[in-house]
Every structure is written in C-alpha cells, then in structure tokens.
Design a protein around this nucleic acid. Structure first.
Length: 568
RNA sequence: CGGGGUGUGGCGCAGCUGGCUUAGCGCGCUUGCUUUGGGAGCAAGAGGUCCCCGGUUCAAAUCCGGGCACCCCGACCA
C-alpha cells in the first residue's frame, strides 16, 4: 500500500473526548472514529488489525475442534421469551419493531439462537458433542459505554457454544477451549490472568474470565501471591471461606449513647473515640422489592454484585431515606440490627466481632457493646465486602492484591440452563431422552486491540506485535526529491510484495520527521529507512518499533533480513 | 438512572465572569517557492447555523429557561 493513497488520517493532538490511553492512540493513529457513544467505525488501518486478530481467533478455534457458523443478528421476541431473558435483559437490549409491529431485538448474545438451531437438528447422542462458534457483531445498549473501544454498544465478539451428552464431555471441550484461549491471547502478545468468575446474566456454574491487567481496566481482580488464587473481585468466596467464631463470651452491657446529628461512620467513630472498623454499618437494601438489612464493618463497603448473587436477586437497590425511616423507625445514619424486624445478612468479618457499635433505630442514638446472638440474630453470613489490598486470601489466608484488568474472554459451564428452558434434548443409546449439557465461550475480539495497546505503547504511540500489525513493514524514503532513494524504495516495495509481505510505502513528499512520527504512532513493527546517512555507506537501515533497535544491512541482504524479523 | 463536566471552522483551544466592533489563536487543509534523519520555513488563501429551541434586551457565543449530544465517577458486561 502506498501511503499517499492510503486512507489514514492521523492526529497530532489528543482528541478531547478520549481519556484512556488506548482510546487516544487508536483515534490519533487513524484506526477508529466515533459515530455515536459506544459506536465506532474501523478505518482501513484498524480494520486490518482487527482482521489479524480474527484470523488468530479463527485458527485456534478451528484447532480446538470448533466449526464456524453465522447466526442472525436480529431475533424475534418469542425466542427470548422461551429462556425468559427478554425480561431479564430488559433495557440492555436494543429492541425494534418490524412493519407489522412485531417485536425483535438486536442480539446481545446467542445462547437462544444456537440452542434453537441445535435442538431441531440434533436428535441423537451420535450428533454430540458439538462445538459451534461465530465471529459477529453484538449489540448491547450499555448503560455506560466507555474507554473507547473497550466498552461499546456495538462490538465484535467471538462466541462459541458446545453441546454434550453429559458433564464429562462438557469438561473435555471446556478444557480444549480454555487452552485455545490461552494460545489466542499469547499470539496477540498479551499477558493474561485467568480468574474464577461469576457467570452473571448468562447463568450456569463455574466460569473463568481471561483478563489482561491494565491500569484502565474496568474489572477488579484479587490475586494471592502465596497460593496463586485468582478471582474476579465480584466473585463471592462463600464456598471456600468460613464464618468466624461467634461464640465469644461477652459480658459488657448493651448501652444506648446519644449521638446527635452523627449520621456518618466518621462522625460516630470520632465522637466515641473508636476505630471505624469497630463499628458495624447496617444498610437497608431492596432485593427485588424485598427489604433486607446488610451488615458490614464500618470501614468497608458492600460489593453489590456479591450481595445480589448471595440473595439470588435480579435487581438490588439501596433503600431511600423515606423507606429507611419507615422500615427502621429512624432516619438514615441510625440503622442497626438490634430489634430490627428484617431479614438480616452479614459479612463474615462481622462474625468475629464483639462489643461493637451500631445504630439504635432511634434518632440521634447509637448502641455500644452490641453482640451477635445475645442482642440480635443473623439470618445468614456471606462474603459481601468490596475486596481491598491486603485482605486475607480466602483460600490460604495469605495477602490479597487487588488489580484492575480488561476482560477479554469468559468461559461458562452452562449445564442445562438453556437446554431445559428451551427443551434441547437428545436420545441416548438406550433410547432415553436427555437434556443436552452446554458450555459457552466468549471473546471480545475488538476489545483485544485496546488491550494490546494498553499493554504495549510508549510516548510515541502504539507498539504492535508482528502477529496483529496492519503491516509488518513500512518503507520510509526520507527524501522524496532524491531520485536514488525514490527508486530504491520502489524496488524494495515490489520485492517485499513479491515475497507476499504486506508493506506500507511512505511515498509522501513530507519531511523525515513526519514519516517517523506517523510510523511510530501507528505501531508498525519494522521500519526500513532510506536516508542519506546509511545509504552513503551503501547500507539500508532497519528500525524496530518495539525495542528501538537499529540495524544496518547490505542492500542485497535486506529482503532476507526482513523475512527473518517477521518470522520471529 | 444518580453525581460531576464539556459543547465555538476538520482537530485542539481562547473569548462567556462584566452583553456592543468584522468571533480570535495553534494545528490541519489549498496554491506557490524553499526544505527533507524525528510532526520544517516563507508567502498567499479557503473554511463558522458559536449544539438546538425559546426568552430577556436597542443589541446575545456571552444573561435566563427548556432540550439534545458527548466525556468522566458509580450499578451492567466481552
């Protein structure tokens, strides 16, 4: 490709609406442009990168035994009613009406569509297992699109679905896909953490997320250096951590104290001269219209994702001041568990606490020397806090580190969540009808590009690995008025193309600096530089974007050298 | 949806507090000449419903009301 003819608008300045580094660089580098919030066009350069990523994903999915399909992006409402997810997805789904006013959606995911297909075509155990995948645009009316291409309302996803006769077969395929994912991210030059996750709206049992650590990640992970435990910070650890000892003897007498106007933890702890950690915060939530009191230590916050999954609720909301007053008899800031007639759920850490401070459900009043069991009962304990750096590891007791990352892949053990609601069954060798066991596996394909850029960049711009570079090589004749450089550039250009190498020839009549800056910004891995300096010595210079390394090679060896650099 | 912010040639911004000229600057763009190892120089140019609607006023980019769009922080997810 000739740069003079290539549609590649690069920007000198940072676009004002791009806060995150990868977003800024993708816009400046001419990879993408925004059309609306969370909706982006891919320009030729960005589309080339996306193509490279798609190729890698496709190769590894095929190698794992997957077969590619293409499912519709528009689905009728009835399909989603079968699984009950039309309601569940709600506003997060783009809805539309056809000319006869029949309801459709732009598909945010394809469990229903694939299950519909497979249930009608596969009737026998002989047709199983089956691993089908597609690479397709997904539509989600995200409440908050952000970080450029990281969280979009229209984005490219690879989604795969597997169907099995039993759990064992699912595990086999699950492992294959898991391994394929590791290879995909590695080939894209990404360093990936695989963590245990909460399956969320997709449903099912154990699931894993493939995360790239990034400062601008929107997911929070906890990592234990000691035992290697890794999980999404929203994943409850109830299964592995236990409630502490609640039997500690406490004889101090329960007492009311006046705390006029003190509605915050800070005010109360300062007034009573105690640490915030010795207070217990009582928060009133509504879980699908049912009020519940949530108890956590005064210095901690509730992780609403954990709470939601603990309560098995679809929506969860903090009660309003009016509702609180109605339910507890006191204004906000004075809620407490003693005498409260609500379902009571507490974080595990509360179980080990004795003689703590709580609200008294009475205006301007708190209680001191409060103790569980003696003064009130907890219905249920669970892991409900937002994890913070230094928390104990739920598995080994070591110290947890909290990091942020970008979720690139998610694998789910769906079990029979969809085959049951949608009646996807088959006959086994005994002629018995059974439910198919399913798995599903997603990769945010477009998002991978942002993740790579977050991990690989410098002050000059993007640094791309050869594997996903739009062009592995660019030729920079520094002075287009120099006939010698010009013809040499043309010769190298046709030689490289003859070798089947994609190359960008910067044939613009621009100063050297412009060419260097553009090449760096767009992240092209190998620069072939034709300038007076090296040509005087009869040599051609090669610069590597990743290391800044400069090589000088004989003209006759150039093509072989470039081929060698591309191979590694 | 709650909280915060922004909207002025293609891009980045100033002007708005305290209303009045022809709305300015940098980058980019066009033409010519010069230049060519890290976003080059000189000269001449093109390009604007100041987000939209309404109000106040002799007069609004500027003040007031409403709306829209976009960004950031929270709840959702690949």
């Amino acid at each position: 490709m000739r740069r003079s003819e290539f549609f590649l608008p690069t920007l000198k300045e940072i676009p004002s609406d791009a806060e995150v580094l990868s977003h800024q660089m993708m816009v400046r580098g001419g990879l993408i442009r925004r059309l609306a919030s969370g909706i982006y066009s891919y320009l030729p350069l960005g589309w080339r990168v996306l193509h490279k990523v798609i190729k890698i994903v496709r190769e590894e999915m095929d190698a794992a035994g997957g077969q590619e399909v293409l499912l519709p992006a528009i689905h009728p409402k009835e399909l989603w009613d079968e699984s009950g997810r039309w309601e569940l997805y709600g506003e997060d789904m783009f809805h539309l009406l056809d000319r006869r006013k029949k309801s459709f959606c732009l598909a945010p995911t394809h469990e229903e569509a694939i299950t519909n297909l497979v249930r009608s075509e596969v009737r026998s155990y002989r047709g199983l297992p089956l691993l089908l995948y597609q690479i397709q645009t997904k539509f989600r009316d995200e409440p908050r699109p952000r970080f450029g291409i990281v969280r979009c309302r229209e984005f490219l996803m690879k989604d795969a679905y597997s169907f099995h006769r039993d759990e064992n077969s699912l595990q086999e395929t699950y492992k294959k896909v898991y391994n394929a994912y590791e290879k995909i991210f590695k080939r894209c030059g990404l360093d990936c953490e695989i963590v245990e996750a909460d399956p969320g709206l997709i449903g099912g049992g154990l699931s894993h997320e493939f995360m790239v650590l990034a400062h601008n990640g929107e997911d929070v992970l906890v990592l234990c250096k000691k035992c290697g435990y890794k999980a999404n910070a929203d994943k409850r650890t109830d299964d592995i951590c236990q409630a502490g000892n609640t039997k500690k003897k406490q004889s101090k007498e329960l007492k009311e104290v006046k705390t006029p106007g003190m509605t915050t933890i800070e005010q109360v702890s300062e007034f009573l001269k105690v640490e915030p950690s010795t207070l217990v915060k009582t928060l009133i939530y509504f879980a699908d219209e049912n009020p519940v009191a949530v108890l956590i230590p005064g210095d901690r916050e509730v992780n609403e994702a954990k709470l939601k999954s603990k309560l098995g609720a679809t929506t969860i909301n903090l009660a309003s001041p009016q509702q609180i007053e109605k339910l507890t008899g006191a204004p906000v800031g004075f809620s407490g568990p003693v005498g409260l007639k609500l379902k009571m759920i507490a974080d595990y850490s509360i179980s080990g606490m004795v003689s703590f401070v709580t609200g008294a459900n009475k205006n301007d009043t708190h209680l001191i020397n409060v103790n569980i069991d003696r003064d009130f009962k907890i219905d249920e304990f669970g892991d409900l806090k937002i994890a913070i750096d230094g928390d104990p590891c739920p598995k080994c007791g070591g110290t947890l580190e909290v990091k942020t990352g970008i979720e690139l892949g998610h694998t789910f053990n769906l079990g029979t969540r969809y085959s049951e609601s949608m009646k996807a069954t088959f006959l086994d060798e005994n002629g018995k009808e059974k439910l198919m066991v399913m798995g599903c596996y997603g990769i945010g394909v477009s998002r991978i590009i942002a993740a790579v850029i977050e991990q690989h960049n410098d002050e000059n711009g993007i640094i791309l690995p050869i594997s996903i570079a739009p062009f592995p090589v660019t030729i920079l004749p520094l002075n287009m008025n120099d006939e010698n450089q010009k013809t040499l550039a043309e010769d190298i250009y046709s030689d490289l193309r003859f070798e089947g190498i994609e190359v960008l020839l910067d044939d613009r009549n621009e100063p050297a600096g412009v060419k260097f800056k553009d090449a760096d910004l767009t992240g092209i891995p190998i620069k072939v530089i034709l300038g007076e300096k090296s040509l005087k010595e009869g040599k051609i210079e090669i610069q590597l974007r990743s290391t800044g390394e400069k090589l000088k090679v004989e003209k006759s060896k150039l093509i072989d050298e470039v081929k060698r650099l591309i191979k590694v």
